[in-house]
């Protein structure tokens, strides 16, 4: 019988959505950290990197407290947008995004910091506004670092287990991602399924990391 690959597809869907979210929030945050000085910057940078070192269960617990249906934020999301994160695949997206966030933020900040701010000043003197400076100078010069960061974040989001389990739960066909399905397969002794899903996740992750190696700044990159 052909193995059920639904968890793998769900993982891909969740990781892709999480990566998009990470990029949308992380790129401005990285630019801010790289270019601006403001009070509490070190604290902000620390908080944004925290998911890298916290136990996933702690992250999951914090997210539950923030987005649960009885909380202010969770209630508002449900009433105004009709979105319930808990025990829903969108919860897995948020959990994966938060876990993966620092893996994008750190290289993205480094990539923006590596762009000589004097080049941006030169562009401003040539009549370009801020958006144009970003699109025509900063982004093209930083894209290698950004792309590498996105690939890392994607690989991390793909493999999230703890935070996803805490927020979205482990509901087959609904919120059961590959990582969770592997756990269940091992529990019930279905080692063929566990092996196949592991192989799938590993292959995609290796592809993502290979992309990072190819793209990361410093390897054949122009200054």
């Amino acid at each position: 019988m052909f193995p059920d690959l639904a968890p793998l597809w769900l993982s891909l869907k969740v990781a892709t959505a999480a990566t998009v979210g990470v990029a949308l929030v992380g790129a401005p945050a990285a630019l801010l950290l790289a270019r601006r000085r403001f009070p509490g910057k070190a604290l902000a940078a620390g908080l944004l990197t925290l998911p890298l070192v916290l136990p996933p269960t702690v992250l999951g617990y914090v997210l539950l407290q923030a987005f649960g249906r009885r909380t202010w934020l969770g209630g508002w999301l449900e009433r105004s947008l009709g979105v319930t994160l808990v025990f829903h695949w969108s919860g897995a997206v948020v959990a994966a995004a938060v876990t993966a966030f620092p893996l994008f933020l750190l290289p993205a900040r480094g990539a923006f910091e590596a762009v000589d701010p004097r080049l941006e000043d030169a562009a401003r003197l040539l009549g370009r506004g801020e958006a144009s400076v970003f699109l025509a100078v900063t982004l093209p010069l930083a894209w290698r670092g950004l792309a590498a960061g996105l690939a890392l974040a994607f690989a991390r989001a793909l493999g999230d287990f703890g935070a996803t389990m805490m927020v979205a739960g482990n509901i087959p066909g609904l919120t059961q991602t590959a990582a969770l399905a592997i756990y269940d397969a091992v529990q019930i002794g279905d080692s063929r399924r566990a092996a196949l899903l592991s192989l799938g996740v590993s292959t995609i992750s290796i592809a993502a990391l290979a992309f990072v190696q190819r793209t990361a700044p410093g390897r054949g990159a122009r200054s």
Binding site: D116, R118, L119, D121, A122, A123, R124, L125, L126, G127, R128, G129, V137, P140, L141, R222, S223
Partner: peptide, 20 residues
């Protein structure tokens, strides 16, 4: 006045050409 509206051209010791 913001830089982009100043209409001042500048050349630098290290030329600061856009490498891309």
């Amino acid at each position: 006045v913001p830089l982009r509206e100043r209409r001042i051209g500048m050349i630098f010791q290290d030329d600061l050409l856009f490498p891309h």
